[in-house]
C-alpha cells in the first residue's frame, strides 16, 4: 500500500462551523454566522487550530458544528422533531474541562463514532454563558429511542464521565415551550 503523504482523509459528512455572538442590536439570525465548511480530517484540524478556544469566548457566544445543509436552530426541518443530549457545566469547569469536552464532542461527530446511529446526529452546540456553560449533541428524531440512547451512552463514555453522573436528553419541542425549571428529560443515561 502506497500512502500519499499529501492526500487528506475524507470524512463521511461535510460539516459546517457556525459562530453566534450576542449583539442585542441585531436579530438572533443576524448574530448567527457560518464560519466555514470542511470535509477532511486535516481541514478540521486546520480550522480547529485557527479559531479561538471555546473557553476564551465571551459570554453569550456559541459555536455550532452541524452537517452541511442543517442550520443550527430548532426550526430547521432536520431538527424540529429531534432533541439534544445536554451537558451542563459548573462555572469552574470552564477552566478545567470545557475545551476537552467540546473537542471530544467534535471528534465523536466527525469520526462518526456512533456507528450506524451516526445518521441520527444533526450537530453539536456549545453555549458560553456566565451562569454556566452548556454542550449538547443534537439528534434528528426524539422518538427514536434506540438511536438516542446509543448516542447518549457512547457520548458519555467519550467524555469520560463517571457512571454516577447522569446526563439527560430533551426534545426540542419541550425545550421550546417550557421554562428551565420545568424542563423534563425524555431519556437519561
Amino acid at each position: 500500500v502506497v500512502v500519499d503523504p499529501f492526500s487528506k482523509h475524507p470524512l463521511q459528512n461535510r460539516w459546517a462551523l457556525w459562530f453566534f455572538k450576542n449583539d442585542k442590536s441585531k436579530t438572533w439570525q443576524d448574530n448567527l454566522r457560518l464560519v466555514t465548511k470542511f470535509d477532511t480530517v486535516e481541514d478540521f484540524w486546520a480550522l480547529y487550530s485557527h479559531i479561538q478556544l471555546a473557553s476564551k469566548l465571551t459570554s453569550g457566544c456559541d459555536y455550532s458544528l452541524f452537517k452541511d445543509g442543517i442550520e443550527p436552530m430548532w426550526e430547521d426541518s432536520w431538527n424540529k422533531r429531534g432533541g439534544r443530549w445536554l451537558i451542563t457545566l459548573a462555572k469552574q469547569q470552564r477552566h478545567t474541562e470545557l475545551d476537552r469536552f467540546w473537542l471530544e464532542t467534535l471528534l465523536c461527530l466527525i469520526g462518526e463514532m456512533f456507528s450506524d446511529y451516526s445518521d441520527e446526529v444533526c450537530g453539536a452546540v456549545i453555549n458560553i454563558r456566565a451562569k454556566g456553560d452548556k454542550i449538547a449533541i443534537w439528534t434528528r428524531e426524539a422518538e427514536n429511542r434506540d438511536g438516542v440512547i446509543h448516542i447518549g451512552r457512547i457520548y458519555k463514555e467519550h467524555l469520560g464521565l463517571s457512571s454516577k453522573v447522569v446526563i439527560g436528553y430533551q426534545a426540542h419541542a419541550d425545550t421550546a415551550t417550557k421554562s428551565g425549571s420545568l424542563m423534563k428529560n425524555k431519556f437519561v443515561v
Binding site: 470524512l11 463521511q12 486535516e42 469520526g111 462518526e112 463514532m113 456507528s115 450506524d116
Partner: peptide, 18 residues
C-alpha cells in the same frame, strides 16, 4: 454503503502529523 469511521486515536494522530 460503507461509513467512514475514525477512532479518537487516529484523529489525534492526524493532528500531530506534519
Amino acid at each position: 454503503g460503507t461509513r467512514i469511521i475514525y477512532d479518537r486515536k487516529f484523529l489525534m494522530e492526524c493532528r500531530n502529523s506534519p
